[in-house]
Amino acid sequence: MDRRTLFVLILFSIALWGAYSIYAPFLLSMVVAVLLAMATSNLTRYLTRTLRSRKIATLVMVLLLFLLILAPIIYIATTGVEYLTHLDQQTIREIFAKARSLTENIPYVNHWAEEYLQVDKVIPYLKGISLYITKMGSKGLGFVKDTVMVIAFYAAAVYNQDRFIATLVALIPAPQRESREMVAEIASTMEVVIYSIIVTAVFEGFLFGIFVSYFGFDGLLFGAIYGFASLVPVVGGALVWVPLSLYAWSELGPQPALAIAIYSVVMISIIADTFIKPIIIKMIKEQLLHVQIRINELVIFFSIIAGMSTYGFWGMILGPAITTFLFAATRIYLVYSSALEE
């Protein structure tokens, strides 16, 4: 290594250190924004060709991201407070009594319900949740702020997506062909993940909202809540329909409560989530996007769970991206190892 190369390397290292010291608080938002831009790159190119303007295409993509993420959160935060304020202590006491009666013959669960399902213990938490949601809708908490930052960085990444992709390809220490394949595979995986998440969340939220609106509940509100809750694998939907069923039992009687519970389990959890969801993912992957990804769908599923457990909401994007990058880097390493052995 000559002096000029060493000098450039030192300058580049100093620049990276300086950039990290400045942008460290926004690093997660920037990474998520770049991954979202990669996932929606094909749609952005299509809009750019159709509208004949990159600026207008960028504006449309930013508005779509806002409507899909931030607008439902603001609606849930503002409208959800009204439902919390209507929950008086007598209503909560009746709901807990129903829950304890349903679990009195279940070992371990009955003791837990008897100990923790007490009005005096839950009221402070409900007040805290109400305050949290109110602040989330009016003053903006961490998640909303992070989402705004993601949208802002997303706008920059979408507008300069070709430069971003070219820079990523150039920075990967591998031949250009392998680098392009790695970036393309990450983008294809993220494209399938993003569109699948959006379609299934909207679909399941629509099914739940339509049904509960029949019993007098706000279908738009609970559909949006269920759509976001469905992003949590396995137990997400139950976080919505279980308390709503108990509330319906207390206010409307056992038949509406059982109808909501049975519908949620059979129609959404079993039919929609188990049978229809894989069909939707397959249609998105093969017929809409026409992409072939090397990572198995089950691996993507577990990477979403791992990502959400580590990074929270945005982990559903970071998990598959990191996993895809790991698989692609492993393949490149194996190719180089085989070449050296020969």
Rank of each mutant, 00 (worst) to 15 (best):
F301N: 02
K285L: 13
K135E: 02
K285G: 15
I281A: 15
A224G: 07
G227E: 09
G140Q: 14
G315T: 12
T274R: 06
V169G: 03
F215L: 10
S41A: 11
G209K: 12
A184F: 02
P243S: 01
L36P: 03
L246R: 02
L59G: 09
V32H: 09
M149Q: 12
L28E: 15
R294M: 02
D88W: 02
F164K: 05
V335P: 10
I194N: 09
I305W: 04
V183H: 01
L43K: 14
Q90K: 10
I210S: 07
D218R: 12
P254R: 07
I268K: 06
L63G: 06
A329G: 05
R180L: 01
V234R: 03
F228N: 13
S338T: 09
A97D: 13
I69Q: 08
L298T: 12
A97G: 08
A272C: 15
I317A: 01
Y333V: 00
A248G: 01
V81L: 10
L141N: 05
M267S: 05
I74A: 11
E342S: 04
N42P: 09
V232L: 15
Y108R: 12
S138L: 09
V202M: 15
T91F: 01
L252I: 07
F7M: 07
G253I: 08
M283V: 13
A259P: 08
P256C: 02
A229T: 05
K135I: 05
E178Y: 02
E178K: 01
K55T: 14
R294V: 04
Q292F: 04
L28C: 03
Q255A: 15
V335L: 11
L131K: 12
V150S: 07
V144R: 03
E286D: 15
A24Y: 01
F143I: 09
V81Q: 03
A238I: 02
K277A: 11
R163S: 15
T200V: 08
P256K: 08
V8Q: 14
A19Q: 11
Y132L: 14
F222L: 11
G128R: 09
M283S: 10
S269L: 06
S269K: 06
V235D: 07
G315I: 06
N160T: 12
L252S: 08
P175G: 00
V169L: 00
L252T: 05
V183I: 12
W314F: 15
V150M: 06
G223E: 09
A97S: 14
S303R: 00
M308K: 07
L141Y: 10
F327Q: 01
Y20Q: 04
F96E: 01
I225D: 13
G237N: 13
I10G: 14
S264T: 02
L59R: 05
V122L: 08
G319R: 04
A71T: 06
P107R: 01
L289W: 03
S303N: 02
R45T: 10
M149D: 10
A229V: 09
I268P: 04
E114G: 05
A152T: 14
V291M: 08
I304P: 00
Y23K: 08
A166T: 07
V122Q: 02
Y20P: 00
E82Q: 14
P243W: 04
F26C: 11
L168G: 11
I260L: 11
E178F: 01
A156E: 06
V150D: 09
L221D: 08
A261L: 12
F153G: 07
